[in-house]
């Protein structure tokens, strides 16, 4: 493997343009736009064929897809936040669909022995995952401060013991980094796998290609799901305990942390990240 990499594969290589003294990865931006447009098309297709006005209320297929996600996210948000929050639910839904389409872009095939994908997944670029994590965590912190007040929110860092302050701060900083890098790592690894499979001679390549792309499709769903779920759980953790009983809140908070940790563990196990 180490012998192959210098020959064909350029890891983390992007088509770059300089503008305003900053570097822009054009390929990532293009595939982001493609994914975003696809999500919007699907969304507007669903709303155009909405059945709320018809007599029998039978949903169309696209509507069922959206209702599945929207319903599930609404349920999660309601379970964890106590109500369907007007910002958290759309955020999680948007994250899910956007990440899902970004991840799946990689599955679109191209000419043989190129990269095996027409567009690189924009989620295989840390710029996108950092951006999503930043949106999530800034929203989470804002939500937490709004729910508990500035004093109440920062008091939470001294609980259960003041000694744990550094750990609590560290936790808040690790959350966005893990969010971003988990998604990036999984999808990036998928891209590397595709590139490696592309090095296999054509007569033998199709089998691992199909298998890996099928697997990658599932990983794409899982990663999108994990990102959206963790977002909801982080909101829940940030807003926990502002009205509830103290011990009850602690218990719930712990449960949420446990759930989040489990979800993260599941997602990390899902992809065997190749060495790089």
């Amino acid at each position: 493997m180490t012998g192959l990499v210098p020959m064909e594969i350029k890891i983390g290589h992007h088509v770059e343009r300089e503008w305003l003294g900053m570097t822009f990865n054009i390929d990532t931006i293009i595939s982001t736009l493609v994914a975003g447009v696809l999500v919007l098309l699907l969304g507007f297709w669903a709303t155009r064929s909405l059945t709320k006005d018809t007599e029998d209320h039978v949903p169309t297929k696209v509507q069922i897809l959206w209702e599945l996600v929207v319903g599930e996210v609404n349920k999660q948000v309601e379970d964890n936040l106590g109500k369907v929050h007007p910002f958290v639910a759309p955020l999680a839904i948007s994250l899910f669909f956007f990440i899902l389409f970004c991840n799946w872009l990689e599955l679109v095939p191209t000419e043989i022995n190129e990269h095996l994908h027409l567009l690189p997944a924009p989620t295989a670029d840390t710029n996108l995952t950092y951006a999503l994590a930043a949106v999530t965590m800034v929203s989470v912190w804002t939500y937490g401060i709004r729910q508990k007040g500035v004093k109440g929110y920062f008091k939470h860092f001294l609980e259960p013991f003041p000694v744990l302050l550094p750990l609590n701060i560290l936790e808040e900083l690790i959350k966005p980094i893990t969010l971003a890098l988990r998604l990036f790592g999984n999808i990036f690894a998928g891209g590397i796998m595709l590139a490696l499979i592309g090095l296999i001679p054509l007569y033998a390549m199709w089998a691992p290609n199909i298998l890996w792309k099928a697997f990658d499709a599932v990983i794409g769903v899982i990663q999108a799901f994990i990102f959206a779920l963790l977002t909801v759980l982080y909101f829940a953790m940030a807003g926990a305990g502002h009205e509830e009983h103290e011990s009850h809140e602690e218990h719930e908070d712990e449960q949420r942390k446990k759930k989040a940790a489990e979800a993260a563990a599941v997602s990390d196990e899902a992809t065997p990240v190749p060495a790089h």
């Binding site: 570097t23 990865n25 736009l33 759309p90 924009p122 710029n127 996108l128 999503l132």
Partner: peptide
């Protein structure tokens, strides 16, 4: 590739618009 560049802001705006 672990260090973000200007693309970060484009992605931020793109996702903001999408959201």
């Amino acid at each position: 590739f672990l260090v973000p560049n200007g693309t970060f802001f484009v992605e931020l705006i793109a996702f903001g618009v999408l959201l």
